[in-house]
Design a protein around this nucleic acid. Structure first.
Length: 563
RNA sequence: CGGGGAGUGGCGCAGUCUGGUAGCGCACCCGGCUGGGGGCCGGGCGGCCGCAGGUUCAAAUCCUGUCUCCCCGACCA
């Protein structure tokens, strides 16, 4: 019997002063987690039950697609990380053992799992495989934040698929989509699967599982039938009213007007009638002038993907040297290559305003194609109101709770994970990696369903199914009834937390609602007198009464009907 | 890494400017009352004021250094 009087559940009336996010405040207040250091958290018993419930759901769904659970260490020799080129990552914790050997603390486990596969797999007959584990990840995050939403140490379910060819990888990936869709549903979360960036390291495709909530660090662009991380989202830009064209560009004086807003205001045109010039320096040291509409922003991830290489913004002195005074630069006459965003209309009678590459001057009547030339590309960030298939998109903040990624040979190649096919030819294994963060899933559930009274857990990941509140003094008749009901509820398969503390009813109710078990049953004098048990559904806080003689069955039935 | 803020009892805070016996609310302990929404009365325990140096007759308070934490941004393979 889980008695609250002897359970470690230190609830707080007030949230920590430094907490911002709802999940941070409530998980601390409800006694689920406690901070140890920046980005380092302990899970107290009730919190750990939530985490374990998420873990079990994930485990069941991974097993259902043929995943094989294993366990790999957190501390690794540095060597395989050097081989894959990941030793240089700043977020990687590095240390030395007593002999001076270089070690790392794992951020993920591609190096190790691929090493095992490289050693064990010889033949196409050994493939495909899906291997996974739940293990601690260590990441030296520049800025941990918001309770368990972004931490330096956390448990991740990471899975890896190994296939002989692209069709096999696609099949493994499809299985993970099924598993992930199901685990997110079973966790009771609102979620989106969104297209995501494959990153600079390459990859054949990736999706992220996003749980929308205010504390989310990511943004997703959504329209009917469309969902993408704004890092990669593509959409039709909204039209903008452009000034009429002119026979040739014409200089206008714009003293001191270095921002799009200032120039548009002074000339009485919408910001979208300007072209924003964003000079970047590519890996080879050359400059590229990126142009986007004045009301748009350059999306550095899309730009990096379009260039297929890293770049950095140009420094003011580089801009001054190669183009003109920062704030007044533009494409006309520029002696550097130009990349023109797709949202900029080419040709036609309409025209844009651009910097003149001279102090305190802009040009109007600039027509792309006529007055300058450049390659085209989609390198801007979408904004709310852009359209996809004719429907306007909206942008929402969300927490990334899972991601799935077609790695290809990114790791099998440097680590030598190959096999022999039927023809006896040596081939590289095609890999996929699939992450899921139970702590983030739990925090997302708190974010999505909390109200002013506290947490309202989805049924499948609540710390307990039912909180049984025993009123009256210890040893009283109503307490005896409560203890009997505990046994009956447990016999129905319910996990029950029994509040047997010597505390007032108000405190018990407040704590129960803070902790947020999906149902609360109250046993007091009224229960004895009326012969009915009061049950409150946490989400919505509505109460109902069930006859005492069938109380356990009725509560179990009610519990099964909850979200 | 840039900007801002904070370390005083378990939690939330005041006191610091203007140096002079370390305070408040909640929590906790004991006794009693109450017993369906954080209830009431009485009595208690608990703090080297983040740490280290310095100034001073005297430092939570002034000076120097240092550590830690939070928020915003950058970053996040």
């Amino acid at each position: 019997m889980t008695r609250l009087s002897s359970y470690l559940l230190p609830t707080e009336r007030e949230a920590p002063a430094d907490a911002e996010a709802i999940s941070h405040k409530l998980m601390v207040r409800a006694g689920l987690i406690r901070q140890v250091g920046s980005g380092l958290w302990s899970w107290l018993p009730a919190g750990w039950r939530v985490h374990q419930r998420v873990v079990q759901i994930v485990r069941e769904e991974m097993n259902a697609i043929g995943g094989q659970e294993m366990l790999m260490p957190v501390m690794h020799p540095a060597e395989p990380w050097r081989r894959t080129g990941r030793y240089e990552i700043d977020e990687l914790f590095k240390l030395k053992d007593r002999r001076g050997a270089e070690m790392v603390l794992a951020m993920t486990h591609e190096e190790i799992v691929t090493g095992h596969v490289a050693a064990a797999v010889r033949s196409y007959r050994d493939l495909p495989k899906i291997l996974y584990h739940f293990q601690v990840k260590e990441r030296d995050e520049p800025r941990p934040r918001a309770g368990v939403l972004r931490t330096r140490e956390f448990i991740m379910k990471d899975a890896y698929s190994f296939d002989r060819d692209l069709a096999g990888l696609e099949a493994s990936y499809a299985k993970h989509i099924v598993a992930y869709d199901r685990m997110l549903d079973r966790c009771g979360l609102e979620w989106y699967r969104v297209e995501s960036d494959v990153g600079m390291m390459g990859g054949l495709g990736a999706d992220e599982y996003m749980a929308p909530c205010a504390a989310g660090e990511n943004e997703v662009a959504l329209a009917p039938g469309y969902a993408a991380n704004v890092e990669v989202a593509r959409a039709e830009a909204q039209a903008v009213a452009l000034p009429a064209g002119r026979p040739a560009p014409e200089e206008v004086s714009t003293p001191g007007l270095t921002t799009v807003e200032a120039v548009a205001g002074a000339l009485g045109v919408p910001e979208g009638a300007l072209l924003k010039a964003y000079p970047v320096i590519r890996a080879d040291g050359s400059m590229l002038l990126v142009l986007v509409r004045g009301d748009h922003r350059v999306n550095e991830i899309k730009l990096a993907n379009a260039l297929g290489a890293k770049f950095r913004p140009a420094r003011p002195e580089e801009i001054a040297e190669r183009l003109g005074p920062p704030g007044f630069i533009g494409p006309v006459g520029a002696e550097v290559p130009i990349l023109v965003d797709d949202a900029i209309g080419m040709g036609g009678s309409a025209s844009y305003i651009t910097g003149a590459n001279r102090p305190d001057a802009h040009l109007r009547g600039v027509e792309p194609g006529r007055d300058f030339a450049g390659e085209r590309g989609d390198v801007r960030s979408v904004v709310a109101g852009d359209t996809v298939h004719g429907a306007a998109i909206r942008i929402e903040p969300a927490i990334e709770v899972g991601n799935i990624f077609k790695l290809g040979t990114r790791y099998s190649e440097p680590l030598g994970a190959g096999f022999l096919d039927e023809a006896g030819r040596s081939q590289l294994v095609l890999m996929g990696s699939y992450g899921f963060g139970p702590a983030r899933a739990a925090a997302a559930a708190v974010e999505q369903f909390a109200d002013e009274h506290g947490i309202a857990w989805p049924r499948n990941i609540a710390p307990f199914d039912v909180e049984l509140v025993g009123l009256g003094k210890a040893g009283s008749e109503e307490r005896e009834l409560a203890e009997r009901l505990y046994g009956e509820l447990a016999a129905q398969g319910l996990d029950v937390l029994y509040d047997d503390r010597d505390a007032g009813p108000g405190e018990k109710f407040a704590d129960a609602e803070l902790l947020g078990c999906p149902a609360r049953a109250t046993v007091g004098r009224r229960t004895l007198v009326g012969g009915e048990l009061e049950v409150q559904v946490r989400r919505g806080r509505e109460s109902r009464s069930v006859p005492l003689e069938q109380a356990a069955e009725r509560v179990a039935e009610l519990w099964r009907s909850l979200p």
